[in-house]
Structures are given as structure tokens and as C-alpha cells.
Amino acid sequence: MMEIWNRAQPLQGFTGGMMIGAACALMLVLLGRIAGVSGLLARALKLTYPPALDLLALVFILGLPLGGLFINQIIGSVEVIYPNEDLILISAGLLVGFGARLGSGCTSGHGVCGLSRLSLRSIFATGIFMLSGFATVALMRSLGLSS
């Protein structure tokens, strides 16, 4: 039990979470839009049907990695450990991209913006992708696959 709390970073998590919440709040109150990253990325790249140019979405998508880079310089390089297997990264990417569009949202759109509004669809989506994520990791563990 103790080792869990040695790993966890509750204060950093909560602080960063409030920053993410504030970013979504700005989009909602100033621009009237939902800060769902998968939806904004698809709109920024005109990967919607019917296709339409969405410059606001593009500007958000450009800001996102720059904000990450900027804070990483300030607080010192954070630990980032990616899966070793390229095949895992590629198949996961395909599933995340296709699934987020089919399910109308991802962790930010459903998990943050939708849940906080108590949207039934978002409550279902978040519950289901969390269960699906738990099951995937458990299955990989039982098959002896590490990522």
C-alpha cells in the first residue's frame, strides 16, 4: 500500500488537473467551445465530414505541444517513458484515433468537459473507456506482454 503513494504525485496531479480544467474553461466561457482534443485535432486537419477549415481548432492544437515544451523547460525535464515496441504505439494510435471519432470524444471531451456537465453520453463513454483500459492492461499482464 505504501509503495503506491511513493509512486503517486497527488499534488502535481491536482495542480496540473486544475490547469487543464482552466484551459477547458477558457474555451467554453470565451469561445463557447468544447476543449476535446480529438475533436479539435480532427477539425484542425479537416478530418471531419463534411470537411471544413477550423482555424480556431488549429491554433489550439499548435499551442498544446508548445505549452508542454515551455513548462518542461521551466520545471526541468519531466520523466517520459514510452512503450518500447513500435508496433504497440502504432496499433494503439490507430485504435485511439478511430475510437475517439466513432465515440465522439476522448479523455478531455468526455472525461473532463462532458463529465463536469453530467452528460449521460460522457458518463457512459468515460466509464466504458476506463473499463476497457483496465481490461486491456490486465490482459497484457496475464499474457506476459509489457508495453
Binding site: G99, T107, M130, S132, G133, S147
Partner: peptide, 8 residues
């Protein structure tokens, strides 16, 4: 599908 990719 999203959850499977997220977990992977």
C-alpha cells in the same frame, strides 16, 4: 476501441 488503445 479507444480504451483498448489507451491501455496498450
Amino acid at each position: 476501441l479507444f480504451g483498448v488503445g489507451w491501455g496498450l
